[in-house]
Design a protein around this nucleic acid. Structure first.
Lengths: 132, 132
DNA sequence: ATCAATTGCGTAATGCTATAACGTGTGCGA
DNA sequence: TCGCACACGTTATAGCATTACGCAATTGAT
């Protein structure tokens, strides 16, 4: 999928995520955009829905937060599965991809005749800088 | 870790999850236990915290729900990473483990000096029975 | 036996996350 | 011009999780 022009709200939300150093919750995004005229959660969620659809933002299920994709130019949907390492100290998120992991998971799913649609791979712990 | 005796509340919650055919949310569990005297969410969450700690229950982050572990006798913490395939039609969850996936993820994390503490691997889609 | 620490429990209140249900305006093709 | 699709704004509500308080039972050291 090629990313269409973003609307005003979508751009505002995307910019906030791009400039953030850690994942943000929808309500945190809302607070950061109040000066830009945002008043209600739905404004954020609607923008996020589109950004997720375009593949330029990822949702981190385990912490109910959102991050800009680490590969802004490529189409993230084409990378296969996406995985995240989330530091619980500094909040930093490292996005990565491993074809072998993809392959093994897909093989298992196929053996079960399970049709995958969305995947979540998130590892929480402490990054190199924060680990004692 | 060896699982200690469960308290009354823990047993009630565990039984509900064991008998369920699909993951349950904390509030659904609460509703099922009102006849047993449960009145507040905290009663459920406190029991769930212990059951998660003992490794006899898993939390599905992507759907804010809980399931009994598929390996009631073994210690689930010793399996390495746990993965779930979640059917969005029938709600059924298949728990599985793949050492190769573990190995690849752990190798990547080690290369980044990232210390993993908790992991979430969840695939949502449609199971063999539900897929058209 | 007593005291302190720990653990589980009950209740009320609150906070965080996400969606439903309205209605408005704008652009665009039939 | 009509109808449709889409983005937007607002209010209200639903769903998930925790904080804060106090009480009761257990354990274990003194």
């Amino acid at each position: 999928m090629t990313t269409p022009m973003l609307t005003k709200n979508q751009s505002l939300v995307f910019d906030v995520l791009t400039k953030a150093e850690a994942p943000l919750s929808a309500y945190t995004i809302l607070d950061k955009l109040r000066d830009q005229g945002f008043r209600a959660p739905l404004q954020v969620y609607r923008a996020l829905d589109k950004l997720l659809e375009y593949g330029v933002v990822h949702r981190l299920e385990s912490i109910n937060s959102f991050v800009a994709c680490a590969h802004p130019n490529e189409d993230c949907h084409s990378h296969g599965l996406v995985a995240f390492a989330i530091c619980e100290s500094c909040g930093q998120v490292i996005e990565f991809h491993d074809h072998e992991v993809d392959h093994r998971l897909m093989a298992w799913l196929k053996s079960q005749k399970f049709k995958a649609e969305k995947s979540t791979i998130e590892i929480r712990g402490h990054c190199g800088n924060c680990a004692a």
